[in-house]
């Protein structure tokens, strides 16, 4: 077990280097550069731009820039935003907790409601309530989150004034409820479907028949025997979804003006602030990697047939 974790942690190093390099190259490949973006529509002197670029090290070859960036990163220096002159680490520490709050809210929603709906439908497959859930989730899966976002924003905030249209204070969970719901909707649909299928399938298994034949009360048959088995694939999926929720937050944060990393990364992209994008994206990569490691370890706890040596 310990060796397995150590191996997985070591494997993260090449994955981390590789993914940052790819993002770095992609930023480099984009047309435009941060200095020109900073100038906006103003007329500018090419000589000035060139000198600023030289000061910032942007005239060096791509690989040299990458090495410079990584050297800084290893020493804990995320770099500085060109336009605002703010250290990127400050930007991240400001925005990250906001996104974390939003993600945790959405994740809790996905887990409770998604699994709940899945169990309710899966226990009675092919009935009206099962068909109803499948239809609802199909709608959620096929609707892009910005459509759902603007729709709910229009109905709940502008028409009925149930909530505020945008989030002004991210520590207020009442304000976060709407963006969290929108953010959660897609994952929720997947989790509900996955749970439903898993429950319906395990319901027919031989060990369930044994559990009934043992004379166990229905509560125990379902709560212990069915759930333990059915939730194994769901837990795996949920772990990976933490990452998707954080990246999905980019759109949702835009709609509801939540000042999290989604908005920061979007703005950095339009200003071609490579260092900011790579910094935030690397952080997300790390979260993804950590989440998948935790899921794999949890998998072994839930399913004794899986053992890591």
């Amino acid at each position: 077990m310990g060796r397995y974790v150590a191996r997985r942690l070591l494997q993260m190093i090449p994955v981390f280097i590789g993914s940052t390099l790819i993002i770095f190259c992609m930023m480099y490949a984009l047309p435009g550069d941060p200095v020109r973006a900073m100038m906006g529509d103003q007329a500018y002197d090419p000589a000035v731009v060139a000198s600023i670029k030289k000061d910032l090290g942007l005239d060096q070859p791509l690989l040299q820039q990458y090495v410079n960036y990584m050297t800084g990163l290893v020493q804990g220096d995320f770099g500085t935003q060109i336009a605002s002159q703010r250290p990127i680490s400050d930007v991240i520490t400001d925005a990250f907790p906001v996104t974390i709050r939003l993600t945790i809210f959405a994740f809790t929603f996905v887990t409770l409601v998604g699994i709940g709906l899945g169990v309710v439908a899966g226990l009675r497959p092919d009935t009206l309530r099962d068909r109803g859930l499948l239809t609802l989730t199909l709608v959620l899966v096929s609707m892009p989150s910005f459509v759902l976002g603007f729709l709910l924003q229009y109905l709940l905030a502008f028409k009925w004034s149930v909530t505020t249209p945008t989030v002004t204070d991210s520590t207020d969970f009442g304000q976060l409820a709407l963006p969290a719901t929108v953010l959660a909707s897609l994952s929720l649909a997947y989790v509900a479907r996955l749970t439903r299928t898993s429950i319906a399938e395990n319901l027919r298994s031989d060990y369930m028949r044994t559990a009934v034949a043992k004379g166990l009360p229905r509560r125990r048959v379902i709560g212990v025997h069915l759930m333990r088995n059915s939730l194994i694939p769901v837990v795996t999926f949920l772990g990976i979804e933490i990452g998707s929720l954080m990246t999905g937050a980019i759109v949702t944060e835009g709609i509801f003006n939540v000042r999290g990393i989604g908005i920061e990364i979007y703005e950095a992209l339009t200003r071609r602030e490579g260092a900011t994008v790579v910094g935030i994206a690397s952080l997300m990569v790390l979260i993804y990697l950590a989440a998948s490691l935790i899921v794999d370890l949890l998998y072994a706890v839930l399913d004794p047939r899986i053992r890591y040596a």
């Binding site: 031989d206 060990y207 034949a213 333990r228 088995n229 194994i232 399913d303």
Partner: peptide, 11 residues
Amino acid sequence: FQDALSSLNPV
């Protein structure tokens, strides 16, 4: 039951 492997709860 016939097949003890599938008739016992694996987890």
